[in-house]
């Protein structure tokens, strides 16, 4: 059997075939390996969210009680502290995602029409929060907010965290919208204005629809970055205002996390995934043929 395999390997006509099989086997193992690396924590989180036992050390059968505790205050496992931090997290994330999507889109439009040198300066500045260490961004914002304390006492908390999240989310929106702006035909805007649109209306009616894929991608990134931010939130919060990450950091090592947190996290992952799948399904149905895309006939 083994000699046959070796023969087959060195037999030239078969060599390509065997190498092909071997390489696809290798590819398969490699992909499985990567999936394990990436999904190991996800398995554990999902499993624990359905675990009947409260501790993460053993599996005690399946249950949905932690999900129930997430939604119903009368549930025996309801944990007010966790629910409040989850509400805080969602509040900051939703407001900052909406704000940064709108602001980022307008900044990108502004940046697009800047002359090249200015635009490159803006992009460089814009890249700073993306590439900078989170700890440096966090403490930079904390320093500025601390300097404002004499003017606005008890500033730290919801507002500082919100400003911080908007600050690090806008760059992602700008970066996803800019390439889409490059693709659109400059004459579109002029045509709209010629046909009687005010400049602002032309932006809303012509430019925004043609860059909506970029806006959406930016919004998704802003949401992704904001919903699980830890380091920057940790530095910019205060006065007892906690999001889920900062709260967890305080709990780790002191007591075990309530499985309600795992349930929240699993649910969030599922919701985000299904929203994306839905959009993908919708998007692929109305996708235009390649030759219709503006790029090819410009």
């Amino acid at each position: 059997m083994f000699t046959k395999l070796l023969d087959a390997l060195f037999d030239t006509p078969n060599k390509a075939k065997v190498m092909g099989v071997l390489s696809s086997l290798f590819k398969l193992f490699f992909v499985v390996f990567v999936v394990i690396i990436l999904y190991l924590p996800i398995f554990v989180i999902a499993l624990q969210s359905f675990n009947d036992s409260r501790t993460v050390f053993n599996f005690g059968g399946l249950t949905l009680k932690w999900y129930e505790a997430l939604f119903f205050a009368q549930s025996a496992h309801h944990n007010t502290e966790v629910v409040i931090t989850i509400q805080n997290t969602l509040r900051v994330t939703f407001i900052s995602t909406i704000l940064s999507t709108i602001l980022g889109t307008f900044v990108a439009i502004g940046a697009h029409v800047l002359d090249k040198k200015r635009r490159q300066q803006l992009i460089l500045l814009n890249n700073v929060p993306i590439l900078n260490a989170e700890i440096v961004t966090g403490m930079s914002l904390m320093l500025i907010f601390s300097l404002m304390l004499p003017v606005i006492p008890m500033f730290f908390g919801f507002w500082t965290m919100l400003i911080a999240h908007v600050f690090f989310s806008i760059p992602y929106v700008v970066l996803s919208v800019l390439p889409k702006l490059k693709e659109i035909d400059v004459n579109l805007y002029d045509a709209a204005v010629d046909l009687g649109c005010t400049p602002f209306k032309a932006i809303l009616k012509v430019i925004i629809p043609s860059i909506q894929a970029g806006i959406f991608a930016g919004m998704l990134l802003a949401f992704t970055m904001s919903i699980d931010d830890f380091v920057i939130s940790y530095f910019t919060t205060g006065n007892g205002f906690e999001n889920i990450s900062t709260w967890m950091y305080g709990v780790i090592g002191k007591r075990s996390l309530s499985p309600v947190v795992y349930a929240y996290n699993t649910l969030l992952t599922i919701i985000t995934l299904s929203v994306l799948l839905l959009i993908n399904l919708k998007g692929s149905k109305r996708q235009k043929p390649e030759w219709l895309k503006s790029k090819s006939y410009r």
Binding site: L38, Y39, L40, P41, I42, V44, I45, Q48, T224, I227, D228, F230, I244, S245, M248, Y249, I252, L257, V261, Y262, N265, L268, T269, T272, L273
Partner: peptide
């Protein structure tokens, strides 16, 4: 997809 789980919780997991 894994990035939509909380970073810190993933590390804990």
């Amino acid at each position: 997809l894994p990035m939509w789980s909380n970073k810190l919780l993933r590390v804990v997991a």
